Simulated scan of single mutants.
Amino acid sequence: MSNKKQKLDPRVLRTRKLLRDALVELIDEQGYEKITVQDITERATLNRATFYLHYRDKLDLLYQSSKEILDDLVGSINVTFDDKIEFDFLKDEDEPHDTFIHLFEQISLNSKLYKVFLTEKDIPYFSSGMKEIIIDFVSNGINFTQPDDKKLTVPREMAVRYFAAAFLEVIVWWLENDMPYSPKFMATQLMKITVKGPYIDLPFGK
């Protein structure tokens, strides 16, 4: 109960965000292993006593920050990804469903954190958590689009893993290049290549 009250307290939220932002900046500059709690509190302009009111150590800060961001992403996707979804991109490739756009929009809101946490080798928890979210996301899409296994060209789980890995790599590429395209453009292109592949005309004959 007290944890829930803390989350509703704007002062606590502000403090946690300052610490999280400091953590992200320092990881980006130095790498996770090199930074200390003292480094984090100095960057956040807070004292160590305040830090320890919220977190046990820097690993706890990392874990909780990762969980909060991933939970936010799951919650936002689940709100928009329901059984009534219509895959308009199958009819009009220039208008992907809002759910796919929303995925990229959510990531862009915390782009620096996603970029740092997905590319830092010492944060496997975040990468694996993000991977599982995308696997569920892709699985829901394929299940809705084609529930009949007999009408898929490969085993369902193979297709899900293939596209989930591709989605994640595209997201990392987008972030590493400072998001050169809009969320809508990314969603449109990703769905286009998922449904039709990269070729305008089949290169291997009819």
Rank of each mutant, 00 (worst) to 15 (best):
M1Y: 12
N3E: 12
K4H: 05
Q6P: 00
K7M: 12
K7Y: 10
K7H: 10
P10C: 07
P10W: 02
R11Y: 08
R11F: 12
R16W: 07
K17M: 15
L18M: 13
L18H: 04
L18N: 06
L19Y: 02
R20V: 12
R20N: 12
R20G: 14
A22I: 04
L26T: 02
I27G: 00
D28M: 06
D28Y: 07
E29H: 04
E33S: 13
T36Y: 08
V37T: 12
Q38H: 13
Q38C: 14
T41Y: 06
T41N: 03
R43H: 03
T45E: 11
R48G: 07
A49W: 08
T50M: 12
T50I: 14
T50E: 09
Y52C: 13
H54S: 11
Y55A: 15
K58T: 02
K58G: 06
K58V: 05
L59V: 07
S66D: 01
I69Y: 02
L70R: 01
L73S: 03
L73W: 00
L73P: 02
V74P: 00
G75I: 06
G75M: 06
S76Q: 11
S76E: 11
I77D: 02
V79H: 07
T80S: 07
D83M: 14
D83P: 08
D83T: 15
K84C: 09
F89I: 08
F89Q: 09
L90D: 01
D92P: 09
E93Q: 09
E95K: 11
T99L: 10
F100L: 06
I101V: 15
F104M: 12
L109I: 10
L109Y: 08
K112H: 10
K115A: 11
T119P: 00
I123F: 03
F126G: 04
S127H: 09
M130I: 04
K131E: 07
K131H: 09
E132A: 13
I133M: 00
I134Q: 00
S139V: 05
S139Y: 04
S139R: 10
S139F: 06
N140W: 07
I142W: 00
F144M: 12
Q146I: 14
P147N: 02
P147M: 05
D149T: 05
D149V: 09
K150R: 00
K151H: 06
K151P: 05
T153E: 08
V154I: 14
P155V: 02
R156M: 03
R156D: 01
V160S: 04
R161F: 03
Y162C: 10
A164L: 05
A165I: 09
A165Y: 07
A165K: 10
A166T: 13
A166V: 13
L168G: 05
L168A: 07
L168H: 06
E169I: 13
V172M: 06
V172H: 01
W173I: 11
W174T: 13
N177C: 12
D178H: 12
M179S: 14
M179G: 11
P180Y: 04
Y181M: 15
S182V: 04
S182E: 08
K184Q: 13
F185E: 14
A187T: 02
A187G: 15
Q189M: 15
L190H: 04
K192G: 09
T194H: 08
V195L: 11
V195G: 03
V195T: 11
K196M: 07
K196H: 13
K196P: 01
P198I: 02
P198S: 04
P198V: 00
P198M: 03
Y199I: 02
Y199K: 04
D201R: 13
L202N: 14
P203L: 01
F204N: 11
